[in-house]
Structures are given as C-alpha cells and as structure tokens.
Amino acid sequence: MSFQISLLCSDPEAGSSPEPLLHINFWEPSVSFRNDEFMGFPMTTLSCELQPRLRDGTARLLRWDADDHDGWWTYTLRLTEVNSLEDVRKLISVPVGQLLENTTAGKTMLETLSAVVCYKTVDDHPDYYRVIF
C-alpha cells in the first residue's frame, strides 16, 4: 500500500489535473520516483474490463490484468476534499478496507464518493489518461 500526492499539472502525459491529487495505490513495489515506480503515465496492462469506462470517462478504480499485477489497484482523490479525520476515514480508511476485503464491493463504494476522480483516455496518446472531476 502506498500514497502519492500529485500537485498541479497541465501536462496531458501526467493526467492534466488543475488541482492537487492524492493517489491511493495497492501495488507490489513502493512508490519510488528514482526507480520509476509511481502513479504516472504511460500506464500499461490496465484491465480489459476497465477499457470501456476509460473511454467514457467513468473509471474511478484503475485495475491491472497482467498476471504479475493481478489484484493491483489505484484510486485518486481530490486532495482538497481531505480536510478532517472524518474525511480520512470516509475517503481512505473505509474504502481501502472494503477494496482489500472485496474489490468489487469497494469499486461500487468508490462510485458514491464525489471526491474520487474519474479517468478518461487521452485522444492520440495510447496508455495516457486524464483526470475528470
């Protein structure tokens, strides 16, 4: 489990976010910019099941297909929405617990949280996705 904060970014290769983001990741490696292990793009081997949601801009939980990445996920919050201990519980602790227990139910829970951003495919940039609020 790792967390990453991404500050303001207008670069389509980095997700084009006009505000700070908090990425919550469940991956094997720890976030390491030195070793190119971080939430960023290009992002390959995303789940085939996820592709329609990426095309229509409704993908809230990024998942991977590859055998060595099966079960990995990331979701992203608008950092400005995390302002209190109750927000940490509601937006991080409870969803992470649900995702670890039952990924499908956790994915459904993320649909109810307006602080969770969606991702959409960037035209003409394979494996790049922009943030949708």
Rank of each mutant, 00 (worst) to 15 (best):
N35Q: 10
D36M: 09
D36H: 12
E37S: 03
E37K: 11
F38K: 10
F38L: 15
M39I: 04
M39H: 08
F41A: 07
F41I: 10
P42V: 10
M43Y: 04
M43S: 10
T44L: 14
T44K: 10
T44D: 05
T44G: 01
T45D: 05
T45N: 02
T45L: 13
L46F: 15
L46C: 08
L46P: 00
C48R: 15
C48Q: 14
E49S: 13
E49N: 04
L50T: 01
Q51P: 02
Q51C: 08
Q51D: 08
P52E: 07
P52V: 04
R53K: 09
R53A: 05
L54W: 00
D56S: 14
D56C: 13
G57Y: 00
G57F: 03
G57K: 01
T58A: 10
T58E: 13
L61W: 01
L62V: 13
R63P: 00
D65L: 08
D65F: 08
D65I: 04
D65G: 03
D65Y: 09
A66L: 10
A66G: 03
D68G: 05
H69T: 03
D70C: 11
G71P: 02
W72F: 09
W73T: 00
W73F: 15
W73I: 00
T74K: 07
Y75H: 05
L77C: 07
L77M: 13
L79R: 03
T80K: 11
E81L: 02
N83T: 14
S84P: 04
S84D: 09
L85K: 03
L85W: 09
D87C: 13
D87W: 09
V88T: 03
R89K: 12
R89N: 11
R89C: 07
K90N: 11
K90C: 06
L91F: 08
I92N: 04
S93V: 12
S93A: 15
V94Q: 10
V94Y: 05
P95Q: 06
V96D: 04
V96P: 01
G97D: 11
G97F: 07
Q98M: 15
Q98D: 12
Q98H: 08
L100H: 04
L100T: 02
N102R: 04
N102K: 06
T103K: 06
A105W: 03
G106L: 05
K107N: 10
M109Y: 13
M109H: 15
L110G: 08
E111M: 13
T112D: 13
T112N: 09
L113E: 14
S114K: 07
S114F: 06
S114Y: 07
V117P: 00
V117N: 00
C118R: 06
Y119T: 01
K120G: 02
K120W: 05
T121W: 01
T121K: 02
T121M: 06
V122F: 10
D123A: 14
P126G: 07
P126E: 09
D127P: 01
